[in-house]
Amino acid sequence: MAMLTVNRLTKKFGGITALDGIDFSIEKGEVMGVIGPNGSGKTTLINCITGFIKATAGDIIFNGRNIRGMKPHKIVNLGICRTFQIMRPYSSLPAYKNLIIPLYGPRARKTGGWRGGGRHGDRNIIALDLLEEVGFERESKVPYKLAGTLPTGYLKRLELARCLALNPDLLICDEVFSGLSMSEIASMVPLIEKLNKSGVTIIMIEHRLKELFRVARRVMAISYGEKIVEGSPEEVMANEKVKEAYLGA
């Protein structure tokens, strides 16, 4: 049985149809890419799956359970974690204290937090471990800096670390590579691969196709809220509609 199945998912904002009957499913352990031009409804799709906005119609089945209409925090606690495209860290807190918040939540407590131990007073240590995991230099001052002062590269990593703190079963990344330099992306890709190897199922929304295709075996393209095509990276890029809608030239 598929881990996540989305059936005829539709979202209307007033007169605008942002999602128009999207169907797809993802197996446990897979990495799936989602591509599409700006405004095609990718972020809206995530928002519907994770409960941040209510879908107008359709079903979202996660591990055999319909989660459409559930509250966001309940969905997280079932194991679906998402990153935000527009990062707003807890800017008045140091970077590592940002992770105390996910570690405080019921999911981290129940699953024992990162490698066990989220229950007791050692959340600071766990937070520093997590930051090291995503590439903050442990011995440097960076983990202790106010999150509001960090550059984009670190903020993306921090956002990823926030999800890791929750021990996700399904991780949904909304453009984690955008705004990063080539070398920063190069150092993020192995991180995603490692996560997937450790058993996390991943949906990646990306504009950086080359890097996306390194990790995603299967890609879905959407345009104006509709799925155009789904298949291997080669199949998708060969599709006429994708060339037209996405590459635009």
């Binding site: 997280v76 935000f84 807890y90 918040i101």
Partner: peptide, 16 residues
Amino acid sequence: RGIKDNDQSVRASGIN
């Protein structure tokens, strides 16, 4: 304090 900075992110961390 996290709720003041960014309540969406707190919800996305599984907290009611």
